[in-house]
Each structure stands twice: as C-alpha cells, then as structure tokens.
Measured scan of single mutants.
Amino acid sequence: MEVRTIKVFTTVDNINLHTQVVDMSMTYGQQFGPTYLDGADVTKIKPHNSHEGKTFYVLPNDDTLRVEAFEYYHTTDPSFLGRYMSALNHTKKWKYPQVNGLTSIKWADNNCYLATALLTLQQIELKFNPPALQDAYYRARAGEAANFCALILAYCNKTVGELGDVRETMSYLFQHANLDSCKRVLNVVCKTCGQQQTTLKGVEAVMYMGTLSYEQFKKGVQIPCTCGKQATKYLVQQESPFVMMSAPPAQYELKHGTFTCASEYTGNYQCGHYKHITSKETLYCIDGALLTKSSEYKGPITDVFYKENSYTTTIK
C-alpha cells in the first residue's frame, strides 16, 4: 500500500517557510505537534488534498525554529505562539472599519479597549522592536488589523473576551517599542525636605499616572512627601515624541487643539466601556464603527496623549 502524501510549508514567522512532505494517514499533531492554519487549530486533523502548498504555523520545537521565533517575536515564552494563534482565530472574524481616516474595530468580545489602543497607536510616533509587531502594525494602518490585535493580546497575556485596560495595554506595548531616546527629568520640591531631581528613561519617561493635564504637570502637581507634608512635583525636561497622561476616570474637559487623542471610560472596574476622542479640525468621538463630532467635550476621561518633541522648564 502506497503512502499518500502532500507537500506543505511549516513556519513560526510566515517569513521562513520549511518544506514538509506530510503523510495523509496521520494527523498534523502526530507529525508536527500543535499546528495552526489561519489561526485555526488543526492539530487533530489529517492532511487533505486542499492543504497542498498551504502554510501551517507550528510551535518552535527545534533550534532553527526557536531562533526564527525569537528573532521575529522577541520572546522565548513557549506558550506565546499558541496564544497568538488562538487569538487570531477570533480577531480574523472582527470587522476593521476605516473611521475618520483611522483603522478602528467594530465592537465584539469586549474589544473596546483594543480599538482605543489601536486608534491611539496610529496617532503617536512609535516604532516597535519585534519585527512581528512592526509588520502587523503597518498592515493594521492599511486596514488589516487582525494579526496586530492578536499579537497585542498575546504580548499582554490576554484572551479574547476578557476586559482590558488601555493604560495597561499601552504599557505592555511600550515595553516592546523603541523608547531608548526618551528621557524625563522631574523635580520634587518640599518646604521641609528641599528639592530632589529624578531622571527617568524609556517607558517611565512617557507615562504618568495622577493627572490628565500635561500643562498642569509642567506647572506642578501636589504629591505627598515622605515627611508627610505636601510637596510639588513638576516637569523639568521632556525628550520624547509623545507623552501619555493618565488618571482614574473623572469628568474632564478636553479643549480642541490642546491634545492629540484621549480615552474615555464609562462604567466601573468590573464592567465598563471605552471610547476614543481625537482632536482634528474639530473633536471626534470614535466608538467602534461609530463616529460623532463636537466642538467641545466633557466626560469621564482616563488617558490623554500629547505630541511632544523637546521641553525644558522655565521655572527657576
């Protein structure tokens, strides 16, 4: 009895394709271990004539594949690729409408935090270190965002349907971005203890939790000093293409032309909904596939993004 075979390709990165001759009487799992086709788990399936010449994702289970996976995804987590594939199996079914010149995501599976993050990423200057993220990001900007969303979920250790947080998501993504040249110098002034300067680099240099107003941050924000008295913390120097200011959701007025974009969060910790506000020729609110415009805006804002380049204080 002759062994019926077909020729397929296996890959971990969709760049390096490895030619395989597979036995049609055995499952993919018996031949390769966990195997995925377009995100779908085909591990328990036997090869079919229609699979001839198709590319299958496999887990990096030998040295060659491990090197290829690390170079593309910059992670050695053995569960990463499987999590990416199972997320992709959902995100490829989502709709990605162009809204006001940006790629958004039609609401499904509690994905409003991903839509808000995706919209924000198209408006701030950011370059990702893992080629996987950078490639998928370019495709997302062009309207094909399924891979990018699935990668975000995998890097953030999230599953489809789980509630997510924009600030946490951005923080994970910033860790995989090139923020080497970003720098922030802060000064804390206390009447009792004097003053202390701190220099922050990388992710810490672009994120701040405690106030939404970048102007206020430049002037000074009140913080408790270690001595128990009130101290003032203010920005001395900022070198970065953008800054992200966050605070627990509270009524906040966004003035046209003073910011790049913002995240609105309605609801409580267990259950809520994100919308995205962007400042173009007027203010726009993007909620999944829905767009509304207004000249002014007041609502429960939790993150505001500002364009920056270089700032030095005039406070002496």
Score class of each variant (00 low, 15 high):
residue 7 K to T: 13
residue 298 K to I: 14
residue 75 T to M: 10
residue 251 Q to C: 10
residue 138 Y to K: 15
residue 192 T to I: 10
residue 203 V to I: 14
residue 215 E to A: 08
residue 276 H to C: 01
residue 158 K to S: 00
residue 16 N to C: 09
residue 221 V to G: 01
residue 87 A to Q: 13
residue 144 E to R: 05
residue 86 S to N: 14
residue 243 V to C: 00
residue 84 Y to T: 09
residue 313 T to R: 14
residue 238 Q to A: 01
residue 132 A to H: 06
residue 137 Y to A: 05
residue 227 C to A: 03
residue 173 L to E: 06
residue 28 Y to A: 07
residue 168 E to V: 15
residue 308 E to F: 05
residue 172 Y to F: 07
residue 165 D to K: 06
residue 295 S to I: 07
residue 274 Y to W: 08
residue 58 V to S: 06
residue 180 D to F: 04
residue 120 T to K: 01
residue 13 D to G: 09
residue 288 G to A: 02
residue 176 H to I: 02
residue 158 K to G: 03
residue 92 K to N: 10
residue 89 N to S: 09
residue 195 Q to W: 10
residue 260 T to N: 00
residue 242 F to G: 01
residue 42 V to M: 13
residue 239 E to A: 09
residue 241 P to L: 02
residue 294 S to Y: 13
residue 171 S to C: 15
residue 139 R to E: 12
residue 292 T to G: 04
residue 13 D to L: 01
residue 119 L to W: 06
residue 33 G to C: 06
residue 292 T to D: 12
residue 308 E to M: 06
residue 103 T to P: 02
residue 53 G to C: 09
residue 60 P to M: 01
residue 11 T to P: 02
residue 31 Q to T: 14
residue 90 H to K: 12
residue 178 N to H: 04
residue 107 W to K: 10
residue 172 Y to E: 06
residue 227 C to M: 01
residue 5 T to W: 12
residue 264 E to T: 03
residue 234 Y to P: 02
residue 31 Q to E: 08
residue 70 F to E: 11
residue 26 M to F: 11
residue 109 D to C: 01
residue 282 T to D: 12
residue 211 T to P: 06
residue 73 Y to K: 07
residue 17 L to T: 14
residue 187 N to G: 08
residue 136 A to L: 04
residue 102 L to R: 03
residue 175 Q to R: 11
residue 165 D to L: 05
residue 279 S to H: 06
residue 64 T to R: 11
residue 275 K to Y: 00
residue 150 A to N: 03
residue 316 K to W: 15
residue 68 E to C: 01
residue 170 M to H: 00
residue 8 V to Q: 01
residue 39 G to V: 07
residue 185 V to R: 04
residue 148 F to L: 13
residue 42 V to N: 07
residue 25 S to G: 15
residue 159 T to Y: 07
residue 215 E to Y: 00
residue 82 G to T: 15
residue 14 N to M: 05
residue 210 G to H: 07
residue 51 H to F: 10
residue 243 V to N: 05
residue 83 R to P: 02
residue 72 Y to G: 07
residue 214 Y to T: 00
residue 188 V to I: 14
residue 209 M to L: 05
residue 199 T to G: 05
residue 45 I to F: 14
residue 127 K to H: 11
residue 263 S to K: 02
residue 138 Y to C: 14
residue 85 M to F: 00
residue 149 C to E: 03
residue 209 M to K: 15
residue 72 Y to T: 08
residue 80 F to W: 04
residue 39 G to Q: 07
residue 182 C to E: 13
residue 35 T to Y: 00
residue 240 S to T: 01
residue 222 Q to A: 08
residue 20 Q to V: 12
residue 44 K to T: 13
residue 316 K to G: 15
residue 172 Y to R: 11
residue 27 T to V: 11
residue 97 P to G: 11
residue 309 N to A: 15
residue 242 F to M: 03
residue 165 D to M: 15
residue 92 K to C: 06
residue 105 I to P: 07
residue 314 T to S: 15
residue 158 K to W: 03
residue 190 C to L: 00
residue 2 E to M: 09
residue 56 F to H: 04
residue 184 R to D: 00
residue 243 V to D: 04
residue 177 A to F: 07
residue 212 L to W: 01
residue 45 I to Q: 15
residue 208 Y to A: 08
residue 199 T to I: 12
residue 7 K to L: 09
residue 245 M to I: 07
residue 70 F to N: 13
residue 316 K to P: 15
residue 316 K to H: 15
residue 241 P to D: 05
residue 55 T to V: 11
residue 159 T to M: 12
residue 269 Y to P: 15
residue 151 L to E: 08
residue 284 Y to V: 10
residue 140 A to W: 14
residue 271 C to A: 14
residue 294 S to P: 12
residue 171 S to T: 15
residue 187 N to Q: 14
residue 99 V to L: 15
residue 163 L to R: 15
residue 186 L to A: 09
residue 54 K to H: 12
residue 289 A to K: 05
residue 98 Q to K: 12
residue 158 K to T: 07
residue 88 L to G: 05
residue 219 K to A: 13
residue 288 G to E: 00
residue 12 V to C: 09
residue 105 I to A: 04
residue 106 K to P: 08
residue 153 L to G: 08
residue 216 Q to D: 04
residue 43 T to Y: 07
residue 265 Y to E: 01
residue 128 F to G: 05
residue 105 I to S: 09
residue 21 V to W: 13
residue 316 K to A: 15
residue 297 Y to T: 01
residue 301 I to Y: 05
residue 233 K to T: 12
residue 131 P to R: 04
residue 224 P to Y: 09
residue 57 Y to Q: 07
residue 183 K to R: 13
residue 287 D to F: 02
residue 49 N to D: 13
residue 166 V to C: 13
residue 139 R to G: 10
residue 140 A to E: 06
residue 260 T to C: 08
residue 123 Q to C: 06
residue 261 C to A: 03
residue 182 C to H: 02
residue 152 I to E: 00
residue 242 F to P: 08
residue 141 R to Q: 11
residue 122 Q to C: 04
residue 190 C to S: 01
residue 197 Q to G: 02
residue 57 Y to E: 09
residue 156 C to Y: 00
residue 37 L to Y: 13
residue 86 S to L: 11
residue 304 V to T: 02
residue 48 H to R: 12
residue 184 R to L: 07
residue 134 Q to N: 05
residue 56 F to W: 02
residue 213 S to P: 04
residue 29 G to L: 08
residue 190 C to R: 03
residue 182 C to I: 05
residue 37 L to K: 09
residue 296 E to K: 09
residue 89 N to W: 14
residue 278 T to W: 03
residue 67 V to A: 11
residue 66 R to C: 09
residue 290 L to E: 14
residue 287 D to H: 02
residue 215 E to M: 02
residue 75 T to E: 02
residue 152 I to M: 10
residue 173 L to W: 02
residue 305 F to Q: 05
residue 297 Y to P: 01
residue 159 T to R: 13
residue 80 F to C: 06
residue 42 V to W: 13
residue 210 G to D: 03
residue 292 T to K: 15
residue 87 A to F: 03
residue 258 T to P: 00
residue 44 K to Y: 15
residue 91 T to E: 04
residue 25 S to T: 14
residue 277 I to T: 00
residue 41 D to V: 11
residue 259 F to D: 06
residue 192 T to S: 13
residue 86 S to H: 08
residue 49 N to F: 09
residue 250 A to H: 15
residue 185 V to N: 03
residue 44 K to A: 15
residue 287 D to E: 04
residue 140 A to D: 09
residue 62 D to T: 12
residue 83 R to E: 00
residue 287 D to V: 11
residue 222 Q to P: 14
residue 261 C to P: 00
residue 108 A to C: 14
residue 194 G to C: 00
residue 92 K to G: 08
residue 202 G to Q: 05
residue 128 F to C: 07
residue 173 L to S: 08
residue 133 L to C: 00
residue 39 G to C: 14
residue 110 N to F: 05
residue 286 I to V: 07
residue 40 A to N: 14
residue 212 L to D: 07
residue 72 Y to V: 05
residue 67 V to P: 03
residue 205 A to C: 02
residue 104 S to L: 08
residue 129 N to A: 08
residue 214 Y to M: 10
residue 136 A to Q: 07
residue 12 V to R: 08
residue 243 V to Y: 02
residue 208 Y to K: 07
residue 205 A to P: 02
residue 124 I to H: 04
residue 180 D to C: 04
residue 147 N to L: 06
residue 106 K to M: 02
residue 100 N to L: 15
residue 41 D to M: 10
residue 60 P to T: 05
residue 218 K to S: 03
residue 204 E to F: 05
residue 181 S to M: 12
residue 105 I to G: 06
residue 138 Y to S: 13
residue 10 T to C: 10
residue 70 F to I: 12
residue 79 S to R: 12
residue 41 D to R: 06
residue 180 D to K: 14
residue 54 K to L: 14
residue 104 S to E: 08
residue 216 Q to K: 11
residue 243 V to M: 05
residue 63 D to I: 03
residue 163 L to A: 03
residue 143 G to M: 03
residue 10 T to F: 10
residue 307 K to W: 08
residue 162 E to F: 03
residue 136 A to V: 03
residue 210 G to M: 06
residue 221 V to F: 12
residue 181 S to I: 07
residue 211 T to C: 12
residue 307 K to R: 11
residue 228 G to I: 04
residue 142 A to Y: 10
residue 300 P to E: 14
residue 52 E to A: 12
residue 69 A to C: 15
residue 137 Y to H: 05
residue 264 E to R: 02
residue 262 A to L: 00
residue 100 N to P: 06
residue 131 P to M: 01
residue 204 E to Y: 09
residue 63 D to M: 09
residue 41 D to G: 06
residue 231 A to G: 03
residue 62 D to C: 12
residue 241 P to T: 06
residue 272 G to Q: 00
residue 167 R to T: 06
residue 169 T to D: 07
residue 222 Q to K: 14
residue 177 A to L: 05
residue 153 L to T: 06
residue 127 K to W: 03
residue 111 N to Q: 05
residue 146 A to D: 01
residue 152 I to A: 05
residue 50 S to F: 11
residue 37 L to C: 11
residue 299 G to E: 03
residue 28 Y to L: 07
residue 6 I to A: 14
residue 114 L to M: 10
residue 261 C to S: 10
residue 82 G to Q: 15
residue 150 A to P: 01
residue 172 Y to H: 12
residue 157 N to V: 06
residue 113 Y to R: 06
residue 99 V to Q: 05
residue 153 L to W: 01
residue 245 M to H: 01
residue 226 T to R: 14
residue 44 K to N: 14
residue 255 K to S: 04
residue 61 N to G: 06
residue 266 T to D: 10
residue 162 E to P: 00
residue 297 Y to L: 01
residue 166 V to Q: 02
residue 258 T to F: 02
residue 46 K to P: 10
residue 210 G to Q: 00
residue 290 L to N: 14
residue 72 Y to K: 11
residue 39 G to S: 14
residue 126 L to N: 03
residue 258 T to S: 06
residue 210 G to A: 05
residue 198 T to D: 08
